[in-house]
Nucleic acid binder design. Structure first.
Length: 739
DNA sequence: ACATGTTCCCTTTTT
DNA sequence: GGGAACATGT
């Protein structure tokens, strides 16, 4: 298939910055890969091309597709393709020494950072109720996303006394990480930018410059950035630095910006033209993915946002089936419906990989997984409670870190008594305090425990531990990584301890340990000669993406966020209720609501042929039964593109009786035979009641007439969120009357 | 030092 | 409802 005119224009444009506004399903990756291939065909050397993506999956796919396009004509492996974080890691390992980092520095994940921070907060002696490690790290992360140091926190709008605490914590945290030869995610970007920024002094570098970092500034003749709408300011600066002497092409879709909460700044794509002189803008609007009806729904959702660059997707493939909306009683009914339909389709020879089930938050996945597995449908759950967050996995990975990087106190402290070897918290605390006092790494304090005032019994055990770690450390260079891990499992007594315990939980842990060993084995197979550092980097940056082998016979369950960039024949978008999607936490903030709307847009545009939106009128949230009403996004869908949904006729004002299962809303589900559930599959019973909807008028005897914003609870505890003029109140429904 | 009990907060979204 | 962090008892 040849490129359409817009795609072609984006591929061949040269000589000035290029902004490609690529709507969902318009062949964005195609444009990027063709552009890179064209550059190589024109004689640009592969090592002078950089392609940056947001996720590892996208990077892998891009590389594969570039390889395929170039078919051995070019040394495509010399192209730099990677995520922001992996590219920064690469730069810092090579050139980070002036910043105090060794080439073998460790990348700390959020949990590692939190463990460092919790000690710092203890030292600072601040209230652990007011200042939690993750809370303070949140501020630090926001600062880092914008390239701000400890002294510039006021630019975040952070006020006293929090600012002082965060400033002190931030300063100490950076020192602590540096002495541990470690960086966190934010540092990867921050340090790389600092390095490159320093190299752009008054003495401008040039080709042939001997300074390695200045050479780097000249290296890339072409830089291509994917998903540019999700970049944060520091990433924007990084891109500008790397493309300082080359040509920059950014690709993205302002309508798919969904990471504002993480510091991404849509204005970078909105204002790219202004900030980059001579920018050429190309719009991709022809959609090759979805049916017309799906696109009509997507457009109806997104057009309500303000501040868009504005695109309208179109297809010449026809309208296709209508988008379905199915209203169910409870989240279990919802899950059963999804499971039943997919089961039927699979029985008629559909492929599992064509199905995806989306939800707003991970918490919603459990019931769905339950019901799907109940019908024998294999599920692949993306993200969620990660394998790599299990205690046993973290323990073993901590052994790897501690062996590889003796300076990493936090990992050493984690494993010193794991499995239990009689080195208790008192002992570890004494050693830590001693190490901090003398300004030495914990590892050194461990070797001279008598100086820290540790008792004789503990001293003996510590000696055993130190010898154990040293023995394993010696093995690092002698055996392959997977063999080393096996030795760790044995030599530390980890396996023995789990076996001795013998209960179900320990057996599960043992299985996880086996799985980790297997995973490392696979990694070594794919990357012969890889060491601890390579594996750990993959773990931390790839979020531990697991082997895709089990993918074939399984359907995919994931949050809408993780669905970005993917497409499926049939998509189920579940939990389409107010306060679920859109999430309760954003309904009062118009800015966040726009992001939520973009999220809905992303979800809808994932579907190729079939899209089903489901919602439950009652749902358990935190174990509390909540009454739900159809999401505003459901209301926004164009009636002609949708089935299973009709407006209820206006009703006379009903009596103000409010009981459980006491409302219907103005959206009614038309049961069609293949979709309907048998009565015995439904939880609870039907009942008659009144109609409630957001925006309806409700009267209260003291406050007068208010506008209904939402509600919570059931039965006697049903409460209304009401706006009376400028004030909002939450009032028990039984004190109110509908108008 | 470890096992069991209790409370709390949680739920956005993740490189 | 449920997991993790804390507290208490042996």
């Amino acid at each position: 298939m040849s490129l359409n005119p817009a795609q072609h224009a984006a591929v061949v444009h040269r000589g000035s910055p290029l902004l490609v506004l690529a709507g969902a399903g318009t062949g964005k990756t195609r444009v990027i890969t063709h552009r890179v291939a064209a550059l190589l065909d024109e004689g640009v050397e592969p090592w002078r091309v950089l392609a940056v993506t947001f996720t590892n999956k996208a990077a892998a796919e891009m590389r594969t597709r570039i390889d395929r396009l170039c078919e051995g004509r070019h040394a495509t492996n010399e192209i730099w393709v990677g995520t922001f974080h992996s590219i920064c890691a690469r730069i810092l390992r090579r050139f980070g020494q002036p910043l105090g980092l060794s080439p073998r520095f460790t990348i700390y994940d959020t949990a590692d950072g939190a463990s460092v921070m919790s000690r710092i907060l203890e030292e600072l002696d601040v209230s652990d109720k007011l200042y939690t490690p993750r809370g303070v790290l949140g501020w630090i992360d926001r600062a880092k996303n914008r390239g701000l140091g400890p002294e510039e926190l006021d630019r975040l709008g952070i006020v006293e006394p929090v600012r002082s605490v965060v400033r002190k914590a931030y300063t100490r945290y950076q020192q602590r990480l540096l002495t541990a030869d470690a960086v966190d995610f934010g540092d990867l970007l921050l340090h790389a930018v600092a390095l490159l920024r320093d190299a752009t002094g008054p003495v401008r570098g040039q080709l042939g410059d001997t300074d390695p970092v200045r050479k780097l500034l000249w290296r890339f003749q072409h830089v291509v950035v994917d998903e540019f709408q999700d970049t944060n300011p520091i990433q924007g600066e990084l891109v500008d630095l790397l493309a300082a002497h080359g040509e920059l092409c950014v690709v993205g879709d302002d309508d798919q910006a969904i990471y504002g909460w993480r510091g991404a700044d849509v204005s970078q794509i909105l204002e790219f033209g202004e900030s980059h002189e001579g920018t050429e803008i190309v719009r991709l609007e022809q959609n090759y993915r979805s049916t017309g009806h799906i696109l009509q729904c997507a457009d109806a959702i997104i057009r309500k946002n303000s501040g868009r660059l504005g695109k309208t997707l179109w297809t010449d493939e026809g309208d296709g089936d209508r988008v379905r909306v199915v209203v169910l009683e409870t989240e279990r009914d919802e899950a059963r419906l999804v499971a039943r339909e997919i089961r039927n389709a699979l029985d008629e020879d559909a492929s599992p990989e064509d199905f995806a089930v989306f939800y707003r938050t991970h918490a919603q996945s459990r019931v769905l997984e339950d019901e799907l597995r109940g019908l024998g449908i294999g599920c692949r759950i993306v993200g969620g409670v990660a394998f790599y967050e299990r205690a046993e996995v973290k323990d073993l990975l901590s052994y790897l870190v501690a062996i590889h990087n003796p300076a990493s106190d936090t990992h050493l402290a984690r494993i010193v008594n794991r499995p239990a070897r009689g080195i208790g918290t008192t002992t570890v605390q004494k050693l830590s305090a001693h190490a901090a006092e003398r300004g030495i790494p914990l590892w050194e304090a461990l070797q001279r425990p008598q100086e820290a005032g540790v008792g004789t019994a503990a001293i003996k055990r510590l000696r055993g531990f130190v010898e154990l770690v040293e023995r394993l450390r010696a093995r690092e260079s002698e055996v392959p990584l997977d063999a080393l891990l096996e030795e760790i499992v044995e030599a530390t007594g980890y396996r023995e301890a789990l076996l001795a315990d013998g209960d179900d939980e320990s057996m599960t842990r043992l299985e996880n340990v086996q799985e980790l060993v297997g995973n490392v084995g696979e990694f070594v197979l794919e990357n012969p000669g890889a060491g601890i550092a390579d594996y750990l980097e993959r773990m931390s940056l790839a979020g531990g993406e697991r082997a895709e082998g089990d993918r074939d016979r399984a359907i995919t369950l994931m949050t809408v966020h993780s669905a970005k960039g993917l497409e499926f024949d049939s998509v189920y978008l579940t939990g389409m209720e107010e306060r679920v999607f859109p999430h309760a936490r954003v309904v009062d903030d118009p800015i966040q609501m726009e992001e939520e709307r973009r999220l809905a847009y992303v979800a809808i545009t994932r579907a190729r042929r079939n899209l089903t939106l489901t919602l439950a009128t009652r749902r358990r949230i935190y174990g509390q039964l909540q009454v739900g009403i159809p999401s505003r996004f459901v209301h926004d869908l164009p009636p002609d593109a949708v089935e299973g949904l009709r407006r209820a006729p206006p009703r006379p004002a009903p009596a103000p009786v409010v009981r459980e299962r006491s409302w219907n809303d103005d959206v009614v589900y038309d049961a069609t035979p293949d979709v309907a559930l048998a009565p015995d599959e439904l939880e609870g019973e039907a009942g008659e009641g009144i109609t409630l909807w957001v925006g309806m008028a409700v009267k209260h005897k003291d406050f007068g007439i208010g506008e209904l914003l939402g509600w919570q609870g059931v039965g006697k505890n049903l409460k209304f969120h009401l706006r009376f003029g400028g004030v909002t109140k939450t009032i028990l429904a039984r004190f109110c009357e509908p108008m």
